[in-house]
Amino acid sequence: MSADNEIVDDKAHIRHRLDFTDAEWITSTDDPDEPGVEIAFLDGYIGMRNGAEPDGPVLVFTPEEWDAFVAGAKDGEFDEP
């Protein structure tokens, strides 16, 4: 966020160039009946999508953002209360 709390898309300059169509998606589960989160590495960025909706939106992370996300997950930051 910027100083005036406006949300800024810091990946706007690259988002239109990233094409995850043929990316190799890695799934979070081995159960085909329960698709989970999927991630793909492409051109120095990390994409994450809902495996149940593979044609849906893709969240895009920089390597630094991804490292922070993974560290938070390992630390329990996203665990349910």
Rank of each mutant, 00 (worst) to 15 (best):
F69H: 12
G76F: 11
R17T: 08
N5F: 14
H13G: 12
N5D: 14
D75I: 00
D31Y: 06
N5W: 08
A71K: 12
G47L: 04
D33S: 14
F41V: 14
G51P: 06
D9H: 09
D33Q: 11
D10R: 14
W25L: 07
E64Q: 13
S2T: 04
G76I: 08
T62I: 01
D43V: 02
V37H: 02
L42G: 12
D33K: 12
I46R: 01
P81M: 05
E24I: 11
D43R: 07
N5K: 10
E53G: 00
P63L: 09
D55A: 12
F69N: 02
A52Q: 13
W25C: 04
D79S: 06
D75S: 14
L18C: 04
E65K: 06
V70M: 08
D19S: 12
E24G: 07
D4F: 08
R17I: 01
G51F: 11
M48S: 11
G76A: 09
T21M: 05
G44W: 01
D31C: 10
M1E: 04
I46N: 02
I39L: 12
W25S: 06
H13Q: 13
K74Y: 02
D22R: 14
E80N: 08
A68I: 03
F41N: 05
S28L: 00
F20W: 15
F41C: 11
P54L: 04
E6I: 13
E80P: 02
R49A: 03
D75L: 03
A73L: 12
I26D: 09
V37A: 15
D4G: 02
I46L: 09
A73Q: 09
E80Y: 10
T62N: 04
G51N: 05
D43W: 00
D33N: 15
G51M: 09
V37K: 00
R49H: 07
E64P: 00
H13T: 01
L59Q: 08
K74M: 09
A40F: 10
F69Y: 14
D22C: 10
E38F: 06
I39Q: 07
D22G: 12
D75Y: 00
D22S: 15
L59W: 03
V8K: 03
D22E: 15
D67H: 07
A71D: 14
D22K: 14
S28C: 04
F69K: 05
W66Q: 03
H13V: 00
R15T: 05
V37P: 00
R15S: 10
T62G: 08
V37R: 01
V8E: 13
D43T: 09
D31N: 15
R17C: 03
A23W: 04
G51Q: 05
R15L: 11
L18S: 03
D67L: 12
T27D: 07
P35E: 04
G47M: 05
I39R: 10
D30L: 06
R49L: 05
V58P: 01
L59S: 10
G36T: 11
A23Q: 05
N5C: 07
L59M: 13
N50R: 08
I14P: 00
T62P: 01
G44M: 03
E53R: 07
I26G: 00
Y45N: 06
D55G: 15
